[in-house]
C-alpha cells in the first residue's frame, strides 16, 4: 500500500504540472500569435508584446510549484518525506493537486485570449499599457486562488 501512496502522489504532481503547464502553453501560444501579427507592423513593440505574452505563463509555474510540493511530501526529491506515506495520504495529495490542474488549464487558455486582445489594444494605443496588463491579471486571479487552495490542502496532509 505504501507504493500506491507514492504512485498517487506522483499522479497528482503529474496532473498539476501537466495540465497547468498545458494551459499556459496554449495561452502563451495564443498571445504569441497575436503578438507576432502586431510586430510585423511595428517591431519596436517587442518589449510590450513580450510582457503581455508572458502573463498567461504563470499558471505553468504554479503547477510546477504544486508538483514540487507534492514530490517533497512523498520524499521523491531531496530528503525525507514530510507525511506518512499511506494510500489515503497519497489520494489526498492527488486531490489537493486538482485545483491548480483544472483552474490552471482553463485559466491559462482564457488568459491567453485576453492577452492576445490586449496586445491588439496596445498596437493601437501603446500609452494604455497599464490597462492592458491589468485585464489578463483579472483572469489570473482564479489561478492564484486555486494555487492557494492547493497549497493549503497539501499543507493540511501530514
Amino acid at each position: 500500500m505504501e507504493h500506491l501512496g507514492v504512485m498517487l502522489t506522483i499522479l497528482g504532481a503529474a496532473l498539476a504540472a501537466g495540465f497547468a503547464g498545458a494551459g499556459s502553453a496554449i495561452g502563451v501560444g495564443i498571445a504569441g500569435e497575436s503578438g507576432a501579427g502586431v510586430m510585423t507592423e511595428d517591431p519596436g513593440k517587442f518589449g510590450l508584446v513580450l510582457l503581455l505574452q508572458a502573463l498567461p505563463g504563470t499558471q505553468g509555474i504554479y503547477g510546477l510549484l504544486i508538483a514540487f510540493f507534492a514530490m517533497l511530501k512523498a520524499g521523491l526529491i531531496g530528503g525525507e518525506p514530510t507525511m506518512a506515506i499511506t494510500w489515503l495520504n497519497g489520494l489526498g495529495v492527488l486531490f489537493a493537486c486538482l485545483p491548480i490542474a483544472i483552474a490552471g488549464y482553463y485559466s491559462g487558455i482564457a488568459q491567453g485570449k485576453t492577452s492576445a486582445a490586449c496586445i491588439q489594444m496596445i498596437a493601437k494605443r501603446p500609452e494604455e499599457t497599464g490597462k492592458a496588463v491589468i485585464l489578463p491579471a483579472m483572469v489570473e486571479t482564479y489561478a492564484v486562488l486555486a494555487l492557494l487552495v492547493s497549497i493549503l490542502l497539501l499543507n493540511g496532509i501530514s
Binding site: 510582457l51 508572458a54 502573463l55 505563463g57 504563470t58 497599464g130 491589468i134 491579471a137 489570473e140
Partner: peptide, 12 residues
C-alpha cells in the same frame, strides 16, 4: 517572473 506578478497583482 515574480516582480511582474507582484506588480500586476498589487496594482489590481
Amino acid at each position: 517572473v515574480n516582480v511582474l506578478g507582484a506588480f500586476v497583482h498589487s496594482l489590481r
